[in-house]
Design a binder for these strands. Structure first.
Lengths: 217, 217
DNA sequence: GGAATTGGACCGTCCGGTCGTTAGAATCCA
DNA sequence: TGGATTCTAACGACCGGACGGTCCAATTCC
């Protein structure tokens, strides 16, 4: 199989390159497989969701899944990749922007809240703790989340230096905010009363001024 | 076999009942099984930890585990029960105390941080999301955590009424703080630089006054 | 008509759980 | 006191079911 493919790519193409061999619905169907799997993973966990579950939810049988995907791990990898793109953008945007530290933090909070509030986000947070998928992949995402916390910590520290944030332990502040954000995946319900942007906004307010009433005017 | 036993129980007991031979190490060993399992569950997840893993960590074989425990689910149940006691005490203490709303919140944060920072705590948080153990048990603890959030929300609302907390959305504030607390289980390392009580203290400070510098004196 | 799709049946493995057995310590009794 | 008895604690081997994954034939559709 491997040699066939590489031969096809190099000298005498067994299959003409430009010739579309798959129906246009292929990509859509593949996407449906991944989206459905993400929903189930997020509801029941990776290990507790069988390929038959996914197939049943799509009204097909297991071999059909395998027509669109190599194996179960690949499905999870796709789910994670989908949310990870959003998260790296959040990190980039927050750290590159020309703002003071506190504004960067608030941008981070707002946009992370939106990025994580999806089935893919729930899926990532869930499977990064409990094992899921290949070991190397898992480590990559664990490392990724850790780096996200570090970025948050660093922009908190920046805010302390530039005076926009009151002196505190940047590491703890980052952990607290990051935890609040990731925990959204445990309770957020798309059909519930508040949407991700409102959640982010309310979190920003809390982290900015705290619970205690301010006397200042 | 049955008739022998019933005969033995009724008229002339062939074996005196109640004559329990002592097994002093039994309880200790059972505890070791549960503690070891908790450590492994917390590291690798419930489903990803096999009974052979637990046995190997104790230098015994699988049937030995079954000498101390009915089945795998029971181990998880024991782990959860061990942390749940602490959590209910936190809830009780926080809501019953004669303090204003904000002080109650701060008590909750401090003591919850300590209660959750154990292998058992990590185990609970981990397995309450992904499935683990009997379905009914799982629902019970999910419900329990939800109630904990509600208590937190209610004492925030109380604080708003008594003026110790600035007006805000109590539900969101509760979710944020509760998330920060539960997320401790994702990153806390007993060998790390800060202990649970310091973590709780720093969280309290953040939630009380927020990041923004206060001008008031 | 041939490639794109799909399903029925099947395989191998892993894992929770069980069975029968046993070494040896503790206890009992002649 | 020493042999017979009984119980603890542990193990090796095995079972059955679930689940990821595969084969191949059937079917559908451009």
């Amino acid at each position: 199989m491997e040699s066939e493919e590489s031969r096809g790519q190099s000298a005498t193409p067994l299959w003409r390159p430009g010739r579309r061999r798959r129906a246009p619905a292929y990509d859509i169907k593949r996407e449906a497989v991944i989206a459905t799997a993400a929903r189930l993973f997020q509801e029941k966990g990776y290990r507790n969701t069988t390929l038959n579950d996914i197939a049943a939810a799509l009204n097909v049988t297991k071999p059909t899944i395998y027509y669109y995907v190599q194996n179960k791990d690949e499905i999870l990898a796709e789910c994670r990749a989908r949310v990870w793109g959003g998260i790296t953008k959040v990190i980039q945007a927050a750290s590159d922007s020309r703002k003071n530290g506190r504004e960067k933090v608030e941008l981070f909070v707002r946009s992370y809240a939106e990025a994580i509030s999806t089935d893919y986000g729930k899926c990532l947070v869930m499977t990064v703790r409990d094992v899921g998928g290949a070991e190397a992949e898992l480590r990559k995402y664990r490392q990724g989340l850790r780096e996200a916390t570090h970025v948050l910590r660093d922009i908190v520290a920046e805010g302390i230096r530039d005076g926009s944030i009151a002196p505190c332990d940047p590491r703890m502040a980052a952990f607290a905010m990051y935890g609040a954000l990731n925990w959204i995946t445990y309770w957020y319900d798309p059909d519930g009363p508040s949407n991700p942007s409102e959640i982010g906004e309310e979190f920003v307010r809390l982290f900015r001024t705290g619970l205690k009433p301010r006397l200042e005017r």
